[in-house]
């Protein structure tokens, strides 16, 4: 009898622990949003000029006479390195995933997967270090640029960081395509490339899109590597060799110096809200696209 009661109790307990684990993700997300929002709320609701914030290029948070909190250049910085990184990482990542999933033998596949996972495990500060000490002189020599810490450097570093994520998620997506699709395609006289292009890519498109968007998320959210590799100059870039500063790098670089609860401190949190909204928008769009594809 006692054993049975104990059994029931442990059953209920386990159920609650699991339930708590499930809910904790939602609580964490809301908690983070609440915290970030609370820190910036005072400025946001009382003295904040949102038009200037979004559309001005002037970022002078510590100026004595001319304080300006315009993040347009920072948005442009984040956008430029992200777009450049994705232009390189998406074709490379998807190509690599197709190779790993469809073309290489089992031994090669194992070796490649281990290497790719290793690449994903490199800490971002190490990537920043590579940007600073390897890419920087390389870009100066090759392009005769005055400085090698710029959009190109940041884009390449971010691409290298996003590729492993894109490869592993995309490879999973391709692997999840049932073999019956491959066979049906081949039975219709598909060549290897036709099979990939006409059958496998359409069948795996949800997963591939998720892979790309996770890559975008990685690139938008990355801080340390871009802080070290992009030159940290507040300006809208007009060429790949211009130095830029990203939203994330600004928060990382300035939060430690801004006095608690000052306007500067709060505006950094508002940048946090902006980043949060950006990634939320990316995820939402992805979700809608995926749902759209599914219903089609």
């Amino acid at each position: 009898m006692g054993q049975r009661r104990w059994h029931n109790l442990s059953e209920t307990l386990i159920e609650w622990v699991i339930r708590l684990c499930g809910i904790s993700a939602i609580i964490c997300v809301f908690g983070i949003f609440f915290f970030v929002f609370r820190e910036g709320a005072d400025l946001l609701f009382h003295r904040f000029d949102i038009v200037q914030f979004l559309f001005s290029q002037e970022w002078y948070p510590t100026s004595q006479s001319h304080i300006r909190y315009g993040v347009l250049a920072l948005i442009a910085g984040t956008a430029s390195v992200t777009v450049l990184a994705m232009l390189m990482a998406v074709p490379f990542g998807l190509g690599a995933a197709i190779f790993v999933s469809e073309f290489c033998g089992p031994k090669m596949k194992e070796a490649l997967k281990i290497t790719i996972e290793l690449l994903a495990a490199i800490p971002s500060v190490v990537w920043g270090f590579i940007g600073l000490t390897v890419m920087n002189p390389l870009i100066i020599t090759v392009f005769h640029a005055p400085i090698g810490l710029n959009v190109l450097n940041g884009g390449i570093i971010l691409a290298l960081m996003s590729v492993p994520i894109i490869v592993s998620i995309a490879e999973d997506a391709l692997k999840a395509v049932p073999d019956s699709y491959r066979e049906a395609g081949l039975a219709l006289g598909a060549t290897r490339w036709q099979l990939i292009y006409r059958v496998l890519l359409p069948a795996a498109k949800n997963g591939l899109l998720a892979a790309v968007l996770l890559g975008v998320g990685r690139a938008v959210g990355e801080t340390m590597a871009v802080l070290m590799a992009t030159g940290h100059a507040v300006k809208i870039p007009t060429s790949l060799l211009d130095s830029v500063r990203t939203l994330t790098a600004t928060i990382a670089a300035e939060l430690g110096e801004a006095p608690m609860h000052s306007d500067h401190y709060q505006v950094l949190f508002i940048i946090g809200i902006l980043l949060f909204s950006l990634t939320f928008a990316v995820n939402l769009i992805a979700d809608l696209i995926v749902k759209g594809i599914r219903n089609k």
Binding site: A184, Q194, R198, P202
Partner: peptide, 25 residues
């Protein structure tokens, strides 16, 4: 041409299924 025991519609619409085969040819 072989038609398998388990019919496998390829991804896409009814039209796509036949059109894919034609395009591949």
């Amino acid at each position: 041409a072989l038609v398998n025991t388990d019919p496998t519609p390829l991804p896409g619409t009814v039209f796509d299924n036949i059109a894919i085969a034609l395009k591949m040819a």
